[in-house]
Amino acid sequence: MKKLKKTTDAIEKAMNALFTFCGFLAVAFVLMITVFLVISGIPAISKIGITDFLFGTTWASTAAEPRYGILPFIFTSVYGTAGAIVIGVPIGLMCAVYLAKMSGKKSAGIVRTAVDLLSGIPSVVYGLLGMIIIVPLVRKAFDLPDGANLFSAIIVLAVMILPSVISVSETAIKAVPKEYEEASLALGATKTETVFKVVVPAAKSGILTAVVLGIGRAIGEAMAVMMVAGNVANMPGLFKSVRFLTTAVASEMSYSSGLQRQALFSIALVLFVFIMIINIMVNFVVKRGESNE
């Protein structure tokens, strides 16, 4: 009996240790990712010089006298993301309003299924459709030699962020207390006015979270953008072929070497810093939203 107790005790202790280990693995992974990115990203930055790297406007990694300025990529990522937000968020918000407040049960079910399915479509499929439909359309509509440019990328990104913007904003709108609405209706506002002037403003911290999540998705998207943005390291213009931070890493990785390869890791580090800032913003917005309630 005593022996049995001893073995069960040992097993209990071992399982306790094992579960604790699993729990801390997530933390270990985050640390590992950060350490590996910093270690491999720093050398090129220190060799090139941080100002030349971050604020240099020319990227010519394979030239005889290579230049490694990533300002074009940073601006492209910022413009592309901003464009996707400007187009995607209003449509997404309207759709969320429909789902939360202005639809019957059946029609809401249909639209919600559509949104769910859209969010499950792989990004390469969006990229393929962009390549075959959007790019030629943009070329014809604006009479350009090539339709693979920032504008096409913005449209594809806008479509891709819609599902997450819609589902997060819908949750936020639904969380607004019913009394707000009832008070507004009782004061003589119509249903639509109530939704747009009372409910949506009351849900603004949740909607802000949706926007920030959309920014995170857009800035991190690589494959779809690679297929429609043209991939030339230009300073961004709406109808210029451009390269994002993500595509800058992906497009040269397979054949890079030496300082060029190190510089690609540095670009990834810059992207990682952007993402971390966005993560912190999400946490901050969510926390503030919770303490308001």
Partner: peptide
């Protein structure tokens, strides 16, 4: 505190874009 730290780590992981995972996966 530990629970909060681990949950923060998982949230961070879910926010990292896949191209970064690809790169770090290659490195590691």
């Amino acid at each position: 505190r530990i629970v909060h730290m681990i949950e923060l780590a998982t949230e961070t992981l879910s926010g990292i874009p896949s191209i970064i995972y690809g790169l770090v996966g290659m490195l590691i």
